[in-house]
């Protein structure tokens, strides 16, 4: 039907980004927050790869950056899981209301 241009990808990645961020803000379960962070990072990946594919740039820096982003977001998630586990040892369930001790 109609061609899929660059802008479609950009809009898609923005929608994913928004979904991810709203998920971060709304989710009660911290594991869901971590997953939403992953969603956001993948949206950014999509952005980079779309730009590299559709425009004739001299360097393919975008794709390389996408690889790095993937790796690093995995690192972040891993550390997030470690921290959640440490908190989980003291409390039964992890919701965002449970970790409200530091306030004021």
């Amino acid at each position: 039907m109609f061609e899929i241009t660059l802008y479609h990808y950009l809009v898609l990645s923005l929608i994913l980004f928004a979904i991810g961020f709203i998920g971060i803000i709304i989710s009660k379960n911290i594991i869901k927050v971590l997953i939403c962070i992953e969603i956001v990072m993948s949206a950014i990946n999509l952005n980079f790869i779309a730009f590299t594919a559709y425009k004739n740039y001299l360097f393919l820096s975008g794709m390389i950056f996408a690889l790095f982003i993937t790796a690093i977001s995995a690192l972040q998630t891993a550390i997030g899981l470690v921290l959640i586990y440490q908190i989980y040892k003291n409390k039964e369930k992890i919701t965002s209301e449970e970790i409200e001790e530091l306030k004021g």
Binding site: F21, I24, V40, M41, S73, L83, I84
Partner: peptide
């Protein structure tokens, strides 16, 4: 808990 907060905010800002 502080570290977890740091992580979540840090991740969102990286995004």
């Amino acid at each position: 808990e502080a570290a977890l907060k740091y992580l979540i905010t840090g991740a969102s800002s990286s995004a």
